[in-house]
Amino acid sequence: MAILPRNLSFSRQILPILAVIGVIVAAWYIISGQPDREIVEPAEQPPKAVGALADAPRVAGAGVVEPASEVIDIGSALSGLVTEVRVRPGDRVAQGEVLFRVDDRAARASLAQADAAISEARAAISEAMTAQRTARQQLDLYRSLTDPAAVSRAEVIRAEGEEAAATSRLGLARARLAAARAAAATARTETERLTVRAPIAGEILAVNIRPGEFVATQGGSSQPFIQMGDTDPLHVRIDIDENEVARVKLGAPAVISPRGAAELHVEAQFVRAEPQVVPKRSLTNSAAERVDVRVLQLIYALPESEDFRVGQQVDAFIAAKDGPTDAED
């Protein structure tokens, strides 16, 4: 007990000191244990209005990138098996360029048939002409005779009949030729219709057929055979809530950011507003989508850029008219 003072008392001295130390330790624990409820900055950049729009009245909308011509779903006039596909996705095609061909063997066979009928009709014509000529010569001969007794009346009638028969045979053969020609033209049109061509110059966006597949003109529920569109420039179709429509400054440029790359801000030029306010097409991919929101669709032209693709979703900010609501701020 030499170290400790003689009259050290547990309850009078040690306990109060321990109590003070305990309170200090507890206070430190409590203060350091307070939860962290600070607001943190987002790790990634969310879409936001920038530049002049950041601090001005504005309207926001979501949209989808589309070709300037909108997407053209190429169809086929006739059904049949695909024999040849000339384009691949991403190809640029000129107007009238062949996209794909449908099996044309049947059409070619009927063309050959029509050609044969033409030859046959031609042969019939020349045969009828020959017969007509012979009959006419004979008739002329009989008619040139001055002596009526030289040839019998019956003989003349027969010759006249032969001439008339040959003439009508010739008429028939000519009519057959015309019919065969018409059939050939039909067969040629048919072959032409089995070749599908690009309606405009543009880019192939999707090819959903391969040689050997059957293209049907009936039904139409399946996906389009080929999708193409004029992708120079690209347009965006921006949905604006009907309640906000009155605020939009039509004609003003829009600031567009693609989804997932919000740090990118592209200025797009106004093209037009759709005349109709339509139910919003939600992009949730749900089969049973029901909506009660209507939107005005605005079309904007994007500048030349590698960052946008057809079908991509974008966020857009458009300048708003100076409304009365802003006066209150």
């Binding site: 009245p57 926001a60 979501a62 809530d241 906000e244 919003k280 929101v293 966020d315 708003a320």
Partner: peptide, 13 residues
């Protein structure tokens, strides 16, 4: 809320 509520909120200064 309907999906366009997001755009409405984004439109607010």
């Amino acid at each position: 809320m309907p999906p366009t509520a997001l755009d409405k909120v984004r439109s607010v200064q």
